[in-house]
Design a protein around this nucleic acid. Structure first.
Lengths: 220, 220
DNA sequence: CTCCATTTGTTGTTAAAACAACATACTTAT
DNA sequence: ATAAGTATGTTGTTTTAACAACAAATGGAG
């Protein structure tokens, strides 16, 4: 296990290398590998465990009765998911988690945290509070992206926000076209169509998951 | 100040009456009254304070550049808001808060919590963690309600969920029609129209903010 | 009670996205 | 290198909601 990596994650940030070991033991940390596309957690299950992504990535999604998929967000390496449900053990999952690529997870038992017998309890608690607050912002953002009634508006609000968050007009997104459509709540073919229009109008270029937003200076 | 009321709120739940006073002092608690419709917090501001609703109610909303309103949620008496931003002081507000009726708030300084010098720190921290986790669920639900592409689908998912959450097929919602439209991300007149259809089809009845979902047994 | 203001409901038109079906481009394995 | 499978792009049709403008109902204030 890469201790240096763990110490830089939002969950363990601020921990001393020595205390990390006892923490991992107290939380019954176990490692597990998932191939691309494999389900990790299903809606309806209860879980007292939450997960830290060691490598790869995970999408958090919801499937309605007719099979329509809604993507709530993407969890990258170093981040955690299912911590909401681990904090509220009485709640059963409303979402599923799926490996969006070959992924290695660290599974952690939250019960130790919620009882008073955890080493570094205060540190992990404040870190978890920060993490859930950040997730609130991520969910709020996803709501803003889908608040426009037009596909173009949704795309531009999402993409320009990504440019800001990633600090560059050229950036990658963690979704393919179908996933982006399910994240923005629109039809995939209509999304592709709108992207083509934006390209034709010289507002952006795309190459797979990589987008470049063009400014006046980029025009011919 | 109604101590008994405070001790039953999710924020102070589990506190001893004696420690509540020192807590309120440490968090520099001050009370303030807002008439219906008045803005409490504006998007763009920073805030290290968060707010507990003593009476009344607050809507959390977002206004885009064209003046379109998106409602993220409603905060009822006993609940708190802006705690996300209080936990992440570097973030400026993406949303505004508006009194949806005559409202009395308790304003609290979060700085005391985040430093290590707070009485009952552990209790408030775990309570806040639970609260932000619950907010995550509330935001996730709002996303699910808007995941259907039809107004009918959005209405039915919202209303049937409310029936479950409130434990009765007859229930009140904290929104008028315009607010409900802005919460579900649809046009108000189209929403009214769809509600009329649902009434005509015998699926529900409405009286102001009060809805009744009808089952087979209610049919004539 | 009456008047004014606000909220809710109704209707017709227009714009936009969903949907379906297909074409093209990319990947990956053999 | 080829073939199969997946992802992306394109086009035409249909459905649906947005929009606009107005009517009806509701709720206070004088």
């Amino acid at each position: 296990m890469d201790i240096q990596f763990l110490l830089r994650t939002p969950l363990f940030l601020g921990a001393a290398p020595e205390e990390l070991e006892s923490l991992l033991a107290a939380m019954e940390a176990t490692q597990r590998r998932f191939p691309r596309g494999e389900g990790i957690l299903r809606a309806g299950e209860d879980t007292a465990r939450f997960y830290l992504v060691l490598s790869g990535g995970v999408t958090v999604e919801h499937h309605d009765a007719w099979g329509n998929r809604t993507i709530l967000g993407h969890v990258a390496a170093g981040e955690v998911f299912a911590e909401t449900y681990a904090c509220l053990p009485q709640q059963s999952m409303m979402v599923s988690a799926v490996a969006s690529q070959e992924t290695v997870l660290l599974s952690l038992n939250a019960a130790a945290l919620l009882t008073h017998s955890c080493p570094s309890r205060d540190l992990i608690l404040t870190n978890l509070l920060r993490i859930t607050a950040e997730k609130n912002l991520a969910l709020s953002r996803r709501i803003f992206y889908t608040s426009s009634k037009t596909i173009r508006g949704r795309l531009l609000s999402y993409l320009s926000d990504q440019a800001v968050l990633q600090g560059s007009l050229t950036f990658s997104i963690p979704f393919d076209r179908q996933q982006l459509a399910d994240y923005l709540g629109v039809d995939r073919s209509a999304l592709s169509n709108e992207l083509s229009k934006l390209r034709r109008e010289g507002l952006l270029t795309t190459r797979k998951n990589r987008f470049s937003l063009l400014t006046q200076a980029d025009l011919p």
